[in-house]
């Protein structure tokens, strides 16, 4: 069953120079799938993620999340929809510096006015799952990047959303922390059957996913599915990236784990 359907999505940025960011892009995401979206800089990855996040509206085309068309919702309902259905992980974590790790994680629940007892129960469970139990009282500037990103994942997970949207979640992390975060994401994906859509530059990050979707200049380019071994999947991703062409500089430095 597909949880997310995009049909002929087009996004044009109006302005002095009109810019076609996404051009008639269609794809579907199955429930419980871990999808990576790859493409060179300026290929429209972030725009795509913003469209799925419902904070930006497509110029034309249809978007369905969980059998709901967010384009038909009023702005207020749309916010409530995001609050309950979506979870976000960002490249630079975007934790609120004033809050502790624990408070950052419960933030989505407090916005929804849940009882404190339930919040405590949930935050303990998630913290244990993410290995954050010992640093719950710390503030974001007192913890490492990996811990910060895990906190952000905890914040995205805690309200059990249908889709987690991750924008370059490993972009600011060293390779060890990046690997931890990716393993964590795939564990979450397998265990709780959470759908994850991740935009990334990093072929290693992409190799943790079930499927990699390549876009170029806002258009569908290719997609590949994972096989039994991550190593070969990684090689195949590299092959497609080199096919994507032109700018080798766009590819991030290759790290092999």
């Amino acid at each position: 069953m597909s949880i997310l359907k995009l049909k002929e999505i087009t996004k044009v940025y109006e302005g002095k120079v009109a810019h076609l960011a996404i051009n008639q892009l269609s794809f579907e995401v199955e429930k419980g799938e871990f999808l990576a979206v790859m493409g060179p800089s300026g290929s429209g990855k972030t725009t795509l993620l913003n469209l799925i996040s419902t904070i930006d509206q497509p110029t034309s085309g249809d978007l369905t999340i969980n059998d709901l068309n967010p384009l038909q919702l009023k702005s207020n309902d749309l916010s409530l929809f995001r609050r309950r259905q979506l979870g976000f992980v960002f490249q630079d974590f975007n934790l609120l510096p004033a809050l502790t790790v624990e408070e950052n994680m419960v933030l989505p629940l407090t916005l929804d006015d849940q009882p404190v007892s339930i919040m405590k129960q949930k935050v303990n469970k998630v913290a244990e799952q993410l290995g954050l139990s010992s640093i719950l009282e710390k503030r974001p500037f007192e913890i490492s990047g990996g811990q910060a990103q895990r906190t952000a994942i905890g914040r995205a997970l805690i309200h059990e959303p249908s889709i987690i949207l991750a924008d370059e979640p490993t972009g600011n992390l060293d390779s060890k922390a990046a690997k931890d975060v990716l393993e964590l994401l795939s564990k979450v994906n397998q265990k709780s059957n959470t759908t994850i859509i991740m935009v990334t530059h990093d072929p290693i990050a992409a190799s943790f996913c079930d499927r990699v979707l390549f876009i170029k200049d806002g258009e569908y380019f290719n997609e590949i599915y994972k096989d039994d071994r991550r190593q070969t999947f990684f090689q195949r991703i590299l092959n497609v990236l080199s096919l994507l062409g032109g700018n080798v500089n766009d590819l991030s430095t290759i790290r092999l784990s």
Binding site: S53, I55, S75, N76, S79, L80, F81, R82, R83, R84, L86, F88, F90, N94, L96, L107, P108, L111
Partner: peptide
């Protein structure tokens, strides 16, 4: 601005 952007993505309505 950045902080409010995060909050808006997390589903905070304009009124909130």
């Amino acid at each position: 601005k950045k902080q409010y952007d995060v909050l808006r993505r997390m589903g905070v309505t304009d009124r909130e």
